[in-house]
Amino acid sequence: MWSPFGSVFVKPKEYMEMISSLKPNLWASLADEVPAWVSEKRNKTSVDRTLHWLDDCLALDPAGGANILGAIVGGSSIEERKRCATKVAMQNVSGFWIGGFGLGESMEERPALLNSVMDSLPEKKLRQISGLSLPEEVLQGVAAGIDLFESTYIYHLTLGGFALTFPLDIVERDIMHSQLSDTGSDCTKINLRATIYRKDTTPIVENCSCFTCQNHTRAYINHLLNVHEMLAQILLEIHNTHHYLAFFHSIREAIKGGKFDLFHRRFIDGRRAHVTSAVPCS
């Protein structure tokens, strides 16, 4: 691991002492994550290292694994993903932390990789994933059976001056004929640094109940961004966090109502409609 004094070699015993001192309710074992393009040999090594580290941590854990999320990796290999998931599922852990996604695999090959992991895990234990954060990726993960997402999406979105604007009432509206596109938009977010918003006196999203939308306009945030005022990031993060959490609420409601597949399909159809439309984006 890296410290203020450079790299430091930490053994499982020292690592478990640090974890114990923090007294977390839940924590994930470390994983050797690798990108999708590594060799088969390197991928296998990453799985072996991840499994050995979990074994060592469990042997030293006084709680016997009651608070541990076992790490699962495997890169772009279905076989290695399945091998890792199967072995971790046999351990006495409280749930699973699934890593190695968002590191080069395509959207098309991801479902098979996710399913190879999910099919090997017990249904009643928590499943957390890292690396999936875009709305369409989240929906892909939920469809596969993911419970919890670890993401820095909102932070990086806000840092870039972007605001989430995609509709949340997807099941109720006709997504193909709704007003989804906006100048400087990709159908999910808008770039509030764009000149077009300099005189836009509307809120980021109409009828949004967040503090930012209730009190400020796109034009004001555009001004703050362009003069490099710190308040811009604060107001943007308030809205983006509110919108992203509302997105997850909509997903839960769709699941409760048995309409998740419709929700998922309409969201993706809306994205495709935007990509194939003739409306230019800046």
Rank of each mutant, 00 (worst) to 15 (best):
M1P: 00
S3K: 15
F9N: 10
V10P: 00
V10S: 03
K11A: 09
L22Y: 06
K23L: 02
L26K: 07
D32Q: 11
E33P: 01
A36W: 05
V38C: 10
V38M: 07
S39E: 04
E40Q: 14
E40L: 14
R42D: 06
T45L: 13
D48H: 04
D48M: 10
W53T: 12
L54C: 11
D56E: 12
D56C: 10
D56Q: 13
C57N: 08
P62F: 01
G65H: 01
G65D: 01
G65F: 00
A66D: 14
I68L: 11
I68V: 06
I72S: 00
V73Y: 02
V73T: 15
G74L: 05
I78E: 13
I78P: 12
E80P: 15
R81V: 04
C84H: 06
T86V: 04
T86S: 12
K87N: 12
A89E: 07
A89N: 06
A89I: 04
S94Y: 02
G99W: 01
F101E: 08
M107Y: 10
E108T: 14
E109C: 09
R110G: 01
R110H: 06
P111E: 02
L121G: 10
P122W: 01
E123R: 14
K124H: 13
G131V: 09
L132V: 03
S133Y: 13
S133E: 06
V138R: 11
Y155K: 11
H156Y: 15
L157H: 13
L157S: 11
G160W: 04
G160I: 04
L164T: 05
L164D: 03
P167V: 03
P167R: 01
L168F: 09
D169Y: 03
Q179I: 05
Q179V: 08
S181N: 10
S181L: 08
G184V: 01
C187P: 02
C187H: 05
T188W: 02
I190S: 07
L192F: 09
K199E: 08
T201N: 07
T201F: 13
T202K: 15
I204W: 02
S209K: 11
C213R: 00
H216V: 09
T217E: 01
R218I: 06
A219R: 13
H223C: 03
L231K: 08
I234Q: 10
L236D: 01
L236G: 04
E237N: 09
H243V: 03
Y244P: 00
A246C: 08
F248H: 15
I251G: 02
R252C: 09
A254Y: 05
K256W: 03
G257K: 14
G257L: 05
F260Y: 14
H264M: 03
H264I: 03
R265Q: 14
F267P: 05
G270Q: 11
R271T: 10
R271L: 15
V275F: 08
T276Y: 13
P280F: 00
S282Q: 07
